[in-house]
C-alpha cells in the first residue's frame, strides 16, 4: 500500500514583486509524481535549489501544491486537520541548533507533539517519552536539561525523538546529518537504520550526500530543476544510472580511500534559474550527451521495470 502519493504536483512562487513592478514566477516544482510504500525509505537527491525542501513541505502539509495533489494514506494532505496530519507525518530538519526551543527542557520538547494532541494521561505520556528517548539512545537524565547543554548529535536525537513520540507513519528527514561531524553522522544513520528495521517506519530522506542516501534508501529519486529526472531501486540507480545528470551526481561522490582521484566532471557548473527553466529538457545546457531534440522537446518518462527516467539519449549499460 502506498502511504504517500504525489500526482502532478507543481509549486510556483511569485518573487520580486514591488509596489510598481510586476513579479516573476519561480517554478520550484514542475510536475512531481511519486509513490512511497509503507516501510520504504525513499532518498531524494539533487543540487541546491532543485526543489527537495519544497517537496518536503508539501508532504508535511506546511504548504499546498499550486496544482496537482499530495495524498497521505489515501486522503489529500489538505483534508487533514493539523493534529491529524501530525499523527501521520513528522519532520526532522537539518539544524539541530535552531530547531529546538532553547527555553524548554528536553522532556517537554519531546512530549510536545502528544501533549498538544492530549494523548493519554500525564503519566502515560511521561512513560512514552522515556521509551522514545531510550529508543533513540538518549540517557534518562537528559529529560531535565536544556538543548544548549547537548552536543549536536544529541540534539538531533532529541529532534528525532520528538518526531517519533506520536508514532507517525512517515518521517521526513531534510538533511538530517549535514550539520554534524562524520562520527556523529554515523550514529544518526545507525539510529535511522534501526528505527526503519524495528518500527517499519516510512522514511523520506533528503540529502546532498549521496553516500548517506546510498546507505539508507531503498529507492532513490533524482531531482533536477523541479522535476524527478530518474528514480528506481537504490542499487539499480547507483549501479547503472540512465540519466546523464544522475551519472554526473554519482561521479561527484568523493571516496576517502587511498588512491582515490578527483572525479572528472563533465557537466557544466551552472544550475539553471527556476525563474526561466530552459526549454526542452531542462538539463540540456549542461548535458554532455545532449543531441537533436533535447533543446526543444521535453522528454516524457520512460519506464523500465521498477525504474524510470526522462531522457532522449539515456546512458547504455552492458
Amino acid at each position: 500500500m502506498n502511504v504517500l502519493e504525489v500526482r502532478g504536483a507543481t509549486k510556483t512562487y511569485d518573487v520580486g514583486k514591488t509596489l510598481v513592478g510586476a513579479g516573476r514566477t519561480l517554478h520550484a516544482l514542475r510536475g512531481i509524481d511519486l509513490a512511497v510504500r509503507k516501510g520504504e525509505t525513499l532518498g531524494l537527491v539533487g543540487e541546491s535549489g532543485c526543489g527537495k525542501s519544497t517537496l518536503a513541505r508539501l508532504i508535511l502539509g506546511i504548504e499546498g501544491p499550486t496544482s496537482g495533489n499530495v495524498t497521505l494514506a489515501g486522503k489529500p494532505v489538505g483534508g487533514y486537520g493539523r493534529l491529524e496530519r501530525a499523527k501521520l507525518v513528522q519532520p526532522v530538519f537539518q539544524d539541530p541548533y535552531s530547531s529546538l526551543n532553547p527555553r524548554m527542557r528536553i522532556a517537554r520538547i519531546v512530549a510536545a507533539p502528544i501533549e498538544v494532541r492530549g494523548i493519554g494521561t500525564a503519566s502515560s505520556r511521561r512513560e512514552r517519552v522515556r521509551a522514545v528517548m531510550n529508543a533513540v539512545g538518549l540517557p534518562e537524565h537528559f529529560t531535565e536539561v536544556y538543548p544548549s547543554q547537548l552536543s549536536g548529535g544529541q540534539r538531533q536525537r532529541v529532534a528525532i525523538a520528538r518526531a517519533l513520540v506520536g508514532e507517525p507513519e512517515i518521517l521526513v528527514c531534510d538533511e538530517p546529518t549535514s550539520a554534524l561531524d562524520v562520527s556523529v553522522q554515523s550514529q544518526i544513520l545507525n539510529l535511522l537504520a534501526r528505527l526503519k528495521r524495528e518500527l517499519g517506519l516510512t522514511l523520506i530522506l533528503i540529502s546532498h550526500n549521496l553516500a548517506v542516501v546510498h546507505h539508507l534508501a531503498d529507492r532513490v529519486a533524482v531531482m533536477y530543476l523541479g522535476r524527478i529526472v530518474e528514480h528506481g531501486p537504490t542499487e539499480a540507480i547507483f549501479g547503472a544510472p540512465r540519466h546523464p545528470y544522475t551519472a554526473a551526481l554519482l561521479a561527484s561522490v568523493l571516496s576517502p580511500r587511498p588512491g582515490a582521484r578527483l572525479p572528472e566532471m563533465r557537466v557544466g557548473a551552472e544550475f539553471p534559474s527556476p525563474l526561466a527553466p530552459p526549454p526542452g529538457c531542462a538539463f540540456h545546457p549542461r548535458c554532455p550527451c545532449a543531441g537533436e531534440g533535447c533543446a526543444t522537446i521535453d522528454p516524457d518518462e520512460t519506464r523500465d521495470g521498477p525504474r524510470g527516467y526522462r531522457c532522449h539519449y539515456p546512458l547504455a549499460h552492458a
Binding site: S186, N190, A193, A211, H215, S255
Partner: peptide, 20 residues
C-alpha cells in the same frame, strides 16, 4: 575511527551498522 564512520558506496554494505 573517522575512517570507519563514513559510508562508502560499493564498500560498506547498505544499512550495515557504521562505526562511530
Amino acid at each position: 575511527g573517522l575512517m570507519h564512520s563514513i559510508p562508502v558506496p560499493g564498500e560498506t554494505r547498505r544499512g550495515e551498522t557504521l562505526g562511530f
